[in-house]
Structures are given as structure tokens and as C-alpha cells.
Amino acid sequence: MKLKICGMKYPDNILEVGALLPDYMGFIFWEKSARYFDGIIPELPKSIKKVGVFVNATQREILERIVQHDLQAVQLHGQESVTFCQDLKSTVNESIEIIKVFSVADDFNFRVLKPFEAVCDYFLFDTKGKLPGGNGTTFDWKVLENYPSSKPFFLSGGIGIDEMEVVNEISKTNLPVYCIDVNSKFEIEPGLKNIKLLYSFTSNLKL
């Protein structure tokens, strides 16, 4: 499994998190988010992929952010259609990863995933809540036992220190969990990450 740390906001904190060498670092380009990023991303180790997080943004906005921040991945966290994902994937450089997010509740219908398999590189499962993300709550991961696809996915939604044991257990299953995505459970305030807590998590997570 890989690790993504999302919702980064402050330059010094970004560099501190970068020193932990997560595989992905997420920057939210949705203005209504408390973690909205409107600065300049400082230089990070080349091994870290920068992810732009968008909510129902236009293709033009996404492309502008890719160029502005040299993004290596795009995370679509809204109601983006199959056609939108397909058009975006055909427009961006083939090396840029497309991650489509689905908000999960206990009654999630996995059949909605099928049309997206060919137009994105990964799925991301987050907890269905009032906001598109960063709600700080987990969903019942037993729902994933019904996952019908071989498409690798990011596991998100309220993952913190207390969830580490369960995350490690999930990694032992046959589920194609590609990456663990953490955010609000490791914050001092929105966008400001607790480095000591993240270090403890990364040291004990079986990546």
C-alpha cells in the first residue's frame, strides 16, 4: 500500500510533511473547503506525486492547475460524469493519473463503478457526509467485501491512529487497496498537519 496525505495548505507544513516522503500529497482546489489551497507549492522530493483535488470544476480549470502546479494526479470529488472523465483523460498527458471519488454509505451500489473503469486510473472511496471530503468519519469497511472490480482504489474517510490496526488487516485481504488517504484526523487545524502524529502513523503502517 501507498500513502496519500491530503488537504495541505501551509508552505512550511508542506515541507515538513514532504520530509516524511508520502507517495502522494493532496492540494484542494475547491474554494468552499477550509483547506482550499491558493498558494505556490514549495519544491518537494521527486518521489511525491502532487494531487489536485477538484469538485465539479471545469476541464479548463483543471488543466490550468495542472500546468500551474505541475500536478501528477487529478482527484475528481464531485458528480463528474463518465464522459467528463473520458474527455479529461484524453486531454491530459497520459502520465497524469485520474482518481474518481465515490462517497460510500452502507447501501452503496457498486454497479455505478463499472462505466468509470475505463476512464480513470483509480477509484477513491470516502465517507458520504455533508461535505465532499474531510468529514473525519469512517464508513463501514465491510461494505468493501462486495467490491466487484479489479480496479485499484484509495481508501479514505476518517482514517487516524485508531484505525491503523484495521487498515493493516485490510491490507492482508484480496481487496486491491492501492493507497491509504489521510487528512483531518492528523490536523492541528484545517490544513495544518500534526507531524509527530503522522510520523507515528507512517512508522507503524504496513506500507
Rank of each mutant, 00 (worst) to 15 (best):
Q86Y: 02
I41C: 07
E43K: 14
K9I: 00
K32G: 07
F37N: 01
I195L: 07
Y10S: 00
L207I: 15
K89H: 03
M164S: 05
S203C: 04
V112D: 05
T91I: 05
N183Q: 10
K32I: 02
K206L: 12
L124V: 09
K206D: 14
E97N: 13
Y199I: 10
M164H: 11
S90T: 13
N109T: 02
D121S: 01
T83A: 15
F37S: 00
I170M: 14
N168K: 00
S81N: 11
S171N: 15
R111V: 12
T91D: 09
N135P: 03
L15F: 12
L15H: 12
I66W: 07
T91L: 10
T83F: 14
I195T: 00
L207V: 14
P22A: 07
E117D: 12
E117V: 06
E169C: 07
V143F: 10
F54S: 03
I188H: 11
G129W: 07
N168I: 00
L207H: 14
L88P: 03
K193N: 05
E31W: 05
D106M: 07
D181G: 10
E187L: 04
I41F: 09
N168T: 00
E117T: 07
N183M: 10
V67C: 14
N168V: 01
E80Q: 09
I159H: 03
Q72D: 12
E163K: 04
P190I: 07
G7C: 08
S200R: 13
P42F: 09
E97L: 13
Y36L: 01
L205P: 00
N194C: 05
V119W: 01
E165V: 10
I40F: 11
D121Y: 01
K196S: 15
V74K: 06
F102H: 08
M25T: 13
I99M: 08
Y36D: 04
D126E: 06
K4Q: 13
N204A: 14
G39R: 03
S156N: 11
F139D: 03
D107Q: 12
K151P: 01
D70E: 15
A105L: 08
M25V: 05
E43R: 10
D38K: 15
E80Y: 01
N13S: 01
S95P: 00
N146L: 08
V51T: 09
L63G: 04
V104F: 09
L44K: 07
L207F: 13
E64A: 10
K50N: 06
T137H: 14
L205S: 07
I188Y: 08
G52Q: 02
G136R: 01
K9A: 05
K206A: 12
D126L: 09
K128H: 14
P176G: 05
